[in-house]
């Protein structure tokens, strides 16, 4: 039994079958990559995991509990964090505040009226936030407005916001898109380290094969909403079906 078990999930948008009978099992503490051409339904699948979409049929179990029908914030409190394909951050707030908010969410739950204490007095959380900013090399940007960051920095910030919560399952939707090569390599190292040291299971969607092959222990190839194969990176590399799915796409 994996920590995440997706069984028989279908999702239609009008006439479009975005997900067709998807089965997926992610083992605890592993890094599982989902790859596939544009429009394959990768993001839609993640949306079904975090409560943004409800599948038409099928079940999604996280650590033995169903996530279907729960609100996004409840699912996060169960231990699933997500990095979005287009960065979702608090643009009007500073980088530091962006990190502090998930810290509070983790410590205090989904709602707490702490209207009289000062944020500045929360030294333990501040320290935790500083540390994660160091980890993603953004310490010197702590007082910048998040909206003024570069695209790559926004991504790293969002990742830091998820990591600081120490989720049990981290979902990453193209975390390195728009990043410079050096930043991509840093991100790979960071994710590797986090996966090993903090026992965070990761499910990563990525087009950059360098990232996929550096990180993933298992890979699922999705094409037109259906899993084509699921295997180890070595076997995926030589699989003719995978070549076909990608070649088929590149001819467009």
């Amino acid at each position: 039994m994996g920590i995440l078990e997706v069984k028989g999930v279908n999702k239609r948008f009008g006439g479009l079958q975005a997900l067709g009978d998807v089965n997926l099992s992610v083992a605890e503490n592993s890094v599982h990559a989902i790859i596939g051409p544009n429009g394959a339904g990768k993001s839609t699948l993640l949306n079904c995991l975090v409560g943004k979409l409800i599948p038409d049929t099928g079940s999604v179990m996280f650590d033995g509990n169903s996530v279907l029908g729960r609100k996004p914030h409840e699912i996060n409190q169960m231990g699933i964090s997500r990095v979005f394909q287009t960065p979702e951050i608090f643009g009007d707030l500073t980088v530091m505040e962006n990190i502090l908010i998930p810290c509070f969410a983790k410590r205090d739950g989904s709602f707490r009226m702490h209207a009289f204490e000062g944020v500045n007095h929360e030294t333990a959380l501040m320290e935790k936030a500083e540390n994660i900013l160091e980890d993603v090399n953004m310490a010197e940007k702590r007082d910048m407005h998040a909206a003024s960051l570069s695209r790559g920095d926004k991504r790293r910030l969002e990742m830091a916001m998820c990591l600081v919560q120490e989720p049990r399952l981290l979902l990453l939707d193209e975390p390195t898109a728009g990043m410079a090569r050096a930043d991509t390599n840093n991100t790979i190292d960071l994710l590797k380290e986090i996966n090993q040291k903090r026992d965070i299971t990761m499910c990563i969607i990525e087009h950059d094969m360098h990232v996929v092959f550096s990180l993933a222990e298992r890979i699922t190839v999705l094409a037109q909403g259906t899993p084509l194969v699921e295997d180890t990176p070595e076997n995926i590399k030589g699989n003719p079906k995978v070549q076909e799915a990608y070649l088929g796409e590149s001819q467009h």
């Binding site: 914030h73 997500r82 979702e88 608090f90 707030l93 908010i101 998930p102 739950g109 989904s110 919560q165």
Partner: peptide, 15 residues
């Protein structure tokens, strides 16, 4: 202020 800035992010952050 987070509510004003990005409610979507807020909800997926467990709030």
């Amino acid at each position: 202020r987070a509510v004003k800035s990005n409610q979507q992010r807020m909800n997926y952050t467990g709030l």
